[in-house]
């Protein structure tokens, strides 16, 4: 998208033969994928296929046990400094929002910039308010998360993640817990973010969103990538039987 000239940092995420087990259960079975700076990638696939586990290994909410993950030139090892460095560069939005219920909306957003980036309170609040404007709810700044609708909470969660000025944003089914009438307000924010050039990996079944902004779609099933293609090709010419079945299931309703 924005960064067409080749340079060594163009691949912002590199996964090489990534394996993970939960006990004896082989959740990730050698995932290989690279993601370019500014790319918007949608990950879809049947439930239980390992999509969440996969994107959670990228910011170390889950530890992978074999293979390499390199984010923006830093390799994810058990070195805590690397882990924190990478977690600072990656924002994440969860299905169940996970806002901090004891903190006001604005404090949810400014917490990490203040404590981790060491910005001054004034600066953090200024940037925080700008972000709340961007996601369309500046008037909710002094409320607590529990007083907001699901859609509003998810938009706060996006603002909270953006406040650390991450280079990459991960979304794990950000609209699955929302009432239908609130899905659009969240997707609108994500579309705007995608158009602004953010590198995004989005686990979602919102194919409208995928068609609108995704550069690439990854179909994930049984612990690995089954098929990946540009958005148009993915919908027009799915190659694998499992992909076709999945598409027929989600596109019919």
């Amino acid at each position: 998208m924005q960064n067409e000239n080749l340079n060594p940092t163009e691949d912002i995420i590199i996964c090489r033969d990534v394996h993970k087990w939960f006990g004896d259960f082989h959740v990730l079975q050698g995932v290989n994928v690279t993601i370019k700076r500014g790319e918007v990638v949608v990950v879809c696939g049947p439930s239980g296929g390992g999509k969440s586990t996969f994107i959670r290994t990228i910011n170390r909410l889950e530890e992978h046990q074999r293979g390499d993950i390199i984010v923006d030139g830093i390799e994810l090892t058990s070195d805590l400094r690397n882990i924190h460095a990478i977690q600072r560069e990656i924002g994440m939005v969860f299905q169940s929002f996970n806002l901090f219920p004891h903190l006001k909306v604005i404090d949810n957003v400014t917490l990490a910039p203040f404590w981790v980036r060491k910005w001054s309170k004034v600066e953090a609040v200024k940037v925080g308010m700008e972000l709340l404007e961007r996601v369309g709810i500046p008037e909710q700044a002094d409320k607590y998360p529990g007083q907001l609708s699901g859609g509003q909470q998810q938009r706060v969660a996006i603002a909270r993640a953006l406040a650390m000025q991450p280079k990459i944003m991960l979304f794990d089914e950000p609209t699955s817990a929302l009432d239908p009438e609130m899905i659009k307000e969240v997707l609108d924010v994500m579309v705007e973010l995608a158009r602004s050039g953010m590198t995004m990996i989005v686990v979602t079944h919102e194919m409208g969103f995928a068609k609108e902004v995704a550069n690439r779609i990854i179909f994930f099933s049984d612990g690995n990538i089954v098929e990946q293609n540009t958005t148009e090709e993915f919908f027009l010419n799915p190659r694998e039987a499992r992909t076709k079945l999945f598409l027929s299931q989600i596109l019919t309703h």
Binding site: R60, N98, L99, L111, A112, V116, A157, M164
Partner: peptide, 12 residues
């Protein structure tokens, strides 16, 4: 989820 969200924003 609270631990995960807190770690995801970069808190140690």
């Amino acid at each position: 989820g609270q631990y995960e969200a807190a770690r995801a924003v970069g808190l140690n």
